[in-house]
Design a protein around this nucleic acid. Structure first.
Lengths: 258, 258
DNA sequence: ATAAACAACTGGTCTGACCAGAGGAATGCG
DNA sequence: CGCATTCCTCTGGTCAGACCAGTTGTTTAT
């Protein structure tokens, strides 16, 4: 069926390629790890040109559904958790510098969020913030090992309680979008960061300071602590990135590439 | 840099196409809604075959970054979701107070945008900012009566040029979304505001001060002027709202509702 | 048994041709 | 003069064929 405002055919040839291959994968005919038929054979089977097939395969590759190696073939990728496939997410993933742009904007908003929470928070808000903070602390002290997913949820609930205490829903929603973006893209790095003793200590200290500032209604201090928190996270992520690059470079030297 | 387990070249041609076009979008050279150069022209500019280009465009389309229509061309998609039924839009419409929440968040981001523009702006950026400012001033001085749509576009272009000079695409995109939201909901009030002699004067003065601060790279002053600008707009809108309420109340009294 | 060469696969890229859709300009008619 | 139709020039969509580069298995020589 045609979309009303768009009179192009139901599907372009490449879209048909994508749909049929995805269906074969969903049906289990093509399994993760299994080699796809060669491009030339797929052309024959699907009755399309190699250019159209390649466009379809390119889209599948872009989605992460298949992996292709020159001279070897394409394989169905291992099943992956469902991901946010918004356009900003794609741009974000492919341009690492944008991560720091995102952190920059987020720091600004988190700082303001903390400041407003200190200024505007009601007694009920402070009860909620206290509750979320205590849940976070209780988990961190008791859990061994720490489950990263659960920690992330508790961390998020804490920051969200502060944000909601700002009584600015636009701020809440905007930060939410940026937080979702951040978490879904660098979750592994944030997990890595928290599993290190040094960062874990200052993260916990900063959470304590942030909590105290909000609950004691010290607006400017809340803002400063929130900014410092995001700044520390950024520097931590940069260190992890630099360390990964050092590892890659030393590996390359070992292999005679340096 | 090569991925260790994968010895293929750093990027396939189509991947290069994707990277370059995404960079143009992130840099603001290609803007949401704007038509891309035709496929044949992009082939010339990028020095690739049409098949490789199409593979790259296919990947961009798959990511939702561009939209293509046969016979017409490809456009850059809006990167942040823009839907009438978004939660923020619902919140916004159903809670008039949220307008002031929006202005609050926007002031924060505009202030930071102006500050970063003053800090990071390149000479080319300042040329663009100057150009947009002069176009705005020229129109304001010459037009009688003023066309609100055109004024809004020029005003937006001026603020956008400043924002792009911040060199933070996340900030640009976030502000864009908030600005679209603002304009679509209170355009009539903003128009009303500008048609009054008092507000028109201080709006023009603040534009001049903002322009001077950005071009002379006075970061803190740029931030202050941007904040003051948004604060004045908020107070102006509140006055219009209060006036409308007074009108409504006196009408009700006339009709025996008081 | 092992190493090197070769062949037959694979994917990657390009060129050229042609088809189909969209939109603007030109022309003709009432 | 306005409107409808036709035509032209763009646009994207698809195809066929050629050739290059990488990978892998087979064959041959030592």
């Amino acid at each position: 069926m045609r979309d009303a405002p768009d009179s192009r055919p139901m599907a372009r040839t490449a879209d048909t390629v994508v749909a049929r291959l995805e269906q074969l994968i969903l049906d289990g005919v093509l399994k993760p790890g299994q080699l796809l038929p060669s491009e030339r054979r797929l052309c024959d089977k699907l009755g399309v040109s190699r250019a159209s097939l390649r466009e379809g395969l390119r889209a599948l590759r872009s989605k992460g559904i298949i992996e292709t190696h020159q001279g070897r073939g394409s394989t169905v990728a291992r099943l992956l958790p469902e991901r946010d496939d918004s356009p900003l997410m794609h741009l974000f993933r492919d341009h690492p510098r944008t991560l720091y742009d995102l952190l920059e904007v987020r720091a600004l908003l988190e700082g303001e969020s903390a400041r407003l929470a200190a200024l505007r928070g009601t007694p009920a808000d402070r009860v909620l913030v206290t509750r979320r903070y205590e849940e976070l602390v209780a988990y961190v002290e008791a859990a061994d090992p720490i489950d990263a997913e659960r920690l992330a949820r508790l961390d998020h609930a804490f920051h969200l309680a502060i944000c909601e205490a700002s009584h600015n829903p636009v701020l809440v929603h905007t930060l939410q979008g940026l937080t979702d973006l951040l978490l879904s893209s660098v979750f592994a790095s944030l997990k890595n960061l928290y599993h290190r003793p040094g960062p874990r200590t200052w993260i916990n200290e900063q959470h304590a300071q942030l909590f105290e500032a909000v609950v004691s209604q010290d607006a400017e201090r809340a803002r400063q602590v929130a900014l410092q928190h995001l700044d520390s996270i950024e520097r931590g992520l940069r260190e992890i990135e630099a360390e990964n690059e050092r590892l890659v470079r030393s590996s390359m030297r070992l292999e005679g590439w340096g």
